Simulated assay, not measured.
Amino acid sequence: MNLQLDTDGRLRHLLTLEALPRETLCRLLDRAGQIRDTALGRTHKRNSLVGTTVCTLFFEPSTRTRSSFQIAAQRLGADIINFDASTSSARKGETALDTLRNLEAMGVRGFVVRHPDDGAAGMLAEHAGEGTTIINAGDGRSAHPTQGLLDVLTLRQAKGADFSKLKVLIVGDVEHSRVARSDLHALRTLGAGEIRVCGPQALLPKDDTLQGCAVGNDFDAMLEGVDALMMLRLQRERMEEGLVTSLADYHRDYGLTAERLQRAAPGAAVLHPGPINRGVEMTDEIADGPQSLVLRQVGNGVAIRMAVLEALLG
């Protein structure tokens, strides 16, 4: 049973980009491109979701993802409920599934779910009622599909739709990154010419996550000639676990500087899902420089999430 697609191939839920048909992925990218001006408030909001209620069901903190889903729903005319586990009955022991069912009983149709456990969004989708849709806004280290979509939309705007010509480098803590996994799924689906992955050995997956990728620990060597870099946030708890010796050492070995960036292809795009640890993953000069597409990613997040909500609930 395919939880994401119905028998006619239409989206029912968005849980992962893994095995999502290329035509479905491209349709979402195309739609996001069409409505980007509306997403950024440059044209009047659409009314395609008037009368629909969307809940952001977040069991983890978030700034960009929650805010952009809120704005996306509002720009489509939907009503929005913000669920915060820290101030809800979850603190009294109510399960995520009971929370879902209670809100369904109030007429909520769309649920944007962020959860620390792998597979949490899929579990809720399995138990969701008829007409209810689940959107995974990040579960454990498994997937963050809308982030993957906005990343490849940003890359497509910068480098064109033919990904077969691109060399893309993903840098950092891939082992614990749901963003990296969704980016990899999207890049493979779009036929990226070469995918490189670089990071400390302790932060690279030991399973088949990196199958088909060129993998290495030498950042300077892996940078040569790449068209785009996807820098990942160093999760500081990895230092407590002994997986990274120090922030200074990490920046020395894997931090992006202006000098290092010269090894990449001219005009190489620099992406980062945020929040950036400035002076760790990259310098201020790079984060705020002309090759940084970080703020474009943020803007594209609203457009992608509008396209997803419209496809699932419109």
Rank of each mutant, 00 (worst) to 15 (best):
R36K: 09
A186F: 07
Q147C: 07
V280D: 13
G77V: 10
A125D: 08
E60S: 05
R27P: 03
S86H: 11
R178A: 02
H115F: 07
R64P: 11
V152I: 13
D207W: 03
G138M: 04
I71F: 15
N102K: 03
S142H: 13
G77M: 15
A287G: 14
A32P: 02
G267K: 09
S62W: 05
R75E: 03
E241R: 13
A19T: 01
A78M: 08
F111E: 02
V108R: 00
P61Y: 03
D8N: 08
C198F: 09
R66N: 12
R27H: 10
G140L: 03
S86V: 12
S246T: 04
R305W: 07
E60N: 04
L293C: 14
E94S: 03
T38P: 10
I35Q: 10
A202S: 13
A202Y: 09
T245N: 05
R91D: 06
C55Q: 00
D218G: 05
R278W: 11
L28C: 04
A105W: 04
L28P: 00
Q235M: 11
G160I: 00
D79M: 02
A78K: 03
D79T: 01
K159N: 01
V174N: 00
S182P: 01
P200M: 05
L295D: 13
D8K: 08
N136A: 07
I195M: 06
T95H: 02
M239H: 01
D220F: 06
A137M: 03
L153C: 06
I276L: 12
I71H: 08
V108N: 00
R305E: 12
L150G: 09
R233G: 15
E104P: 05
D288K: 07
I276P: 04
R263W: 12
R296A: 10
A128M: 13
D118I: 06
